[in-house]
Amino acid sequence: MKPALFDYVRAETLDEALAVLAAEGSDARVIAGGQSLMAMLNMRLARPKVLIDIMRIDDLDRIDEERGRIVVGAGVRQAKLLAWDNLAAKLPLVALALPWTGHEQTRSRGTVCGSVAHADPSAEMPLCLIALDGQVHLRSARRRRLVAAAEYVTGMMSTTRQDDEMIEAVSFPVRDGNGYSFREVARRHGDFAITACAAIASADGIRLAVAGVADKPETRDWPDLAGSALDDALNAFAYELDARDDIHATARYRRDLVRQIGRDVIMEARRCRA
C-alpha cells in the first residue's frame, strides 16, 4: 500500500528537528533508517502530518565511549555498529544479537535507535538495551533526559517518549568481565523472533532477558541457580510472561522455548564468564 499524505522536512541540524517536533507534537514523526516506520506508513498504521528526516544530521552518526558507556547516536545504522571494531570487546551481547536484527538488506539502513524507538516486543535491540541496563537519551527543545531502557518501553510499541521528544542516542554499559549469550528462534533468519533470550552471568548470579513473549522484553535476576532450582525458576518465568497464541506459535510453544533456550543461554553465559 501507499502512505497517506505528509510533509517532509530534511533537518540539517538537531535544533531544526527539535523545533519542528516542538511545533507539531504528535502530528510529527522522526524518520531515521525507516525500516520500521516506512512499513507502518505504507500500511497506514502511522499517519503523521510531517515526517522529519534526521539522517543528514552528521552529529547523530556517532559511536562514542563516555564514562564506561558506549553511546550510539540516532543516526548510527545497524550495519555500522556491527562493523565497529570494538563491538565484540565492548558490547559482546550486542555483537551476538545484531546479526539477528533484520537482514543484511535492512541493517544497511535501519538504525539502532530506530529499533528502540519502534519498541517491537520481539526486537533484539530493545532486548539488549534492557538486559544490559542501558539508557535512552531523550531530547526536546525544552530539555534532555535520560531514561532507563526498562522504563522507556512500556508495552507493545509504546514508550514513555513525549510528543515533542526524540531519541538522540542510546547508551550501553561497557562489558565488565561478565559472560553473555544470545539465541533466538524465528521462522526465517532475520524475521522477528518468536522467542529471543539473552543471558548475562556476573559474579553475583544470572540475568535472563526474554523478548517475543510478553508485550515487552522482560528480565529476571537470580543467584547462581542450578539443577531443578533453575528449572523451577525458568518454568515460573515462562508462565509469568503470559504468552498468547498467535499465527506464528502457540503460547505453550513459547513457554517451552523460554525454558529450553533460557537454560541454554544461561549455561553458555556462565561458561563465558571471566
Binding site: Y8, R10, G34, Q35, M38, A39, N42, L51, D53, M55, R77, A79, E104, Q105, T106, S108, R109
Partner: peptide, 13 residues
Amino acid sequence: GMLTRACLTLAVQ
C-alpha cells in the same frame, strides 16, 4: 553503496 529496500525508502530521501 547501501543495500536498500526501495519500498521502505522515499524518493525524496
